[in-house]
Amino acid sequence: MDPAQLAALLALAAVAAYVQTLTGFAFGLMMMGGVGLTGIIPLAEAAVLVSILVVVNAAQVLARGWRDIAGREFALVMVSSLVFLLIGYWLLGILLKGSLDWLKLVLGTVIIVSSIQLLFKPEPLERRSGNGSFLFFGAIAGLMGGLFSTAGPPLVYHLYRQPMRAAAVRETLVAVFALNAFLRLGTVALAGQMPDRHFLWSLATIPVVIAFTQLARRYPPGISPLNMRRLAFVLLFLSGASLAIPALLKLIGDFS
């Protein structure tokens, strides 16, 4: 990785961490979308990097907040999430062996759908959803986590609709994402597919993410949370479309 690529990766991590802190999610989506557009590092390596950064962030958060984890909901989500994480990682291997355009199309579509979700505020339910719903959304989170290490959006929306304390929702999500990321890293290592030593330069993003997370907390921008969500939507939607549309057009051309 040359200095220009490293600088671009650090800038991308800084923006993603800042937006993540202000919106509640989007870090993995922005990192994967930015890497997909720029080609700074391979997408498979980007997913490994996102997993590492998620674990680092979770260690900071859960050091104090682990007592707020909703144990029952956490267990239900993880039961299905872990199974589908392996399925998602298996699907990633198939996509990597095939056309890179298929991989970009799937990633772009995931980012577009997730960005649209940012526009809708979850309406709280009067009663807790059934256990099956947690298993279902856990499965989606695991599948997305296995593919691109971006397990968040559908599960975030579902948990924030539950009649739970905000702290319990937040810490439960952090714990789910952290365990998914940790197990994904273990799966990559067991498969012998960890990146080579050149990837170590990417770990320079760790202090950048920590610094810009603190910066966003102490000095938030002078715009409303709603407008911040709208800005995040625009950034994510454009990056997703920029990935998916060219890939789709190329695939259509290949079939015709």
Rank of each mutant, 00 (worst) to 15 (best):
K97M: 11
P154D: 11
A247T: 03
V19C: 07
A11Q: 03
L43F: 07
A191K: 12
W102C: 04
E45L: 02
G132K: 05
V156T: 10
G130Q: 02
G138T: 06
L159Q: 01
P153H: 10
N227L: 15
P154A: 12
K104F: 08
V55F: 12
R128A: 14
N180R: 09
F74I: 06
L91K: 01
E45M: 11
T23L: 10
T21P: 03
F199Y: 14
T150F: 12
G222K: 14
R161L: 02
M78C: 06
I245Q: 01
R217T: 11
S202A: 15
P221I: 10
T150D: 09
S224I: 06
L9C: 06
F27G: 06
M30I: 15
T21Q: 10
G146V: 12
V156N: 09
V55M: 12
F177N: 02
L107W: 02
G39Y: 10
G34D: 11
A13K: 01
A232Q: 07
G65E: 13
L236V: 08
A175Y: 09
L155H: 03
P225D: 06
N57S: 15
V106T: 00
V54H: 06
F25R: 04
L12V: 00
M31L: 15
K97G: 15
G130V: 03
W102Y: 11
L49R: 02
L100Y: 04
L226Y: 11
A26N: 08
G65R: 11
S80T: 05
V54D: 04
F137T: 09
L53S: 05
L92I: 08
Q5A: 15
W102M: 07
I116G: 07
T187A: 15
P207F: 14
V55P: 12
L248R: 00
L49G: 04
G152W: 03
T109S: 15
S239F: 14
M31V: 15
L92W: 08
P195E: 09
A14M: 06
T213F: 15
E73G: 13
L248K: 02
Q20M: 02
A247F: 08
A181W: 10
Y18M: 03
Y160F: 15
D196Q: 09
V48N: 04
H198R: 14
A26Q: 08
A70Y: 09
L37E: 01
F27K: 05
Q214D: 12
R128S: 14
G36P: 11
F27T: 02
V19K: 01
S51N: 13
G130H: 05
G88I: 09
E45Q: 14
A191R: 09
G65S: 12
Q60H: 14
L96R: 05
G88D: 07
A178I: 11
I94T: 07
M194P: 00
